[in-house]
Amino acid sequence: MTHHFTVLTQRQAETIAYTWHYEGDYAFYNLEADEDDLAEFIDAEQRGQSVFAVTSDGELVGFVSVMRPDAETVDIGLGMKPSLTGNGSGRAFVTSILDFVKATYAPHRITLSVAAFNVRAIRVYEACGFEQTGSFQQPTNGSTFTFIQMERQESPQNQSF
């Protein structure tokens, strides 16, 4: 599956925010579950040029947000369309995001945070070369949750230019 990346449009943001609903424990990732997250995601000014739609064959299949906390690091946050999760396509999805980030930003390090209960995603990230570096407590969705910090070092041989 070939993925394409473009700056997320308002229509795409609203589609994700209001129609992408995950089941069971993963409902934690429904944007409507946290008013602050929802407001930030649907506000085009706050998103700026740092949130990208991931499409395949013209279909919106995911998104990735990119932050540059320093000149050597890119921090990502991502989401995959609910109907595509849990079917073995996560590694290809994350790999395409990593290729995009490396080609666009050439970071020395890529970081992300993931809810500790999301063992499925943690396994995918580890298979893509991320290592756990710590954890923290984050108030969100009306409670406080543990998040795992993960990091992937980018050496010259990992660069795909």
Rank of each mutant, 00 (worst) to 15 (best):
F130Y: 05
V124G: 00
L98D: 02
N141F: 11
T146S: 11
A115V: 08
F100N: 09
K102W: 12
R109C: 13
F136W: 11
T104I: 04
Q132Y: 01
S135Y: 14
E126G: 09
I122Y: 02
V119Y: 06
Q149G: 14
F136C: 12
F130Q: 02
Q132S: 07
E131G: 06
A127W: 05
V124L: 09
Q132K: 11
A127C: 10
L98T: 05
A115M: 10
F117H: 01
D99P: 00
A121G: 05
S135M: 14
A103L: 06
G142L: 09
V114N: 08
N118M: 07
A115W: 06
L98F: 08
T111P: 05
T140A: 13
A103H: 07
F136P: 00
V124P: 01
I122L: 03
Q132I: 04
E126W: 03
T140C: 11
E154Q: 10
S135I: 01
F100G: 10
R120W: 12
G142K: 01
L98M: 13
S143D: 14
Y125D: 06
L98G: 00
F136Q: 15
R123N: 06
R123C: 06
Q153A: 12
G134Q: 03
A106V: 06
A103F: 04
Q153K: 11
K102H: 09
P107C: 08
H108N: 11
K102I: 15
N141H: 14
N118A: 08
F136D: 15
R152D: 07
A103V: 03
R109P: 01
E151T: 06
H108K: 14
Q132H: 02
Q132G: 05
E131Y: 03
A106E: 08
A116Y: 00
F117W: 11
I148L: 14
R109H: 12
T104F: 03
T144L: 10
A103D: 11
V101Q: 01
A116N: 04
V124K: 02
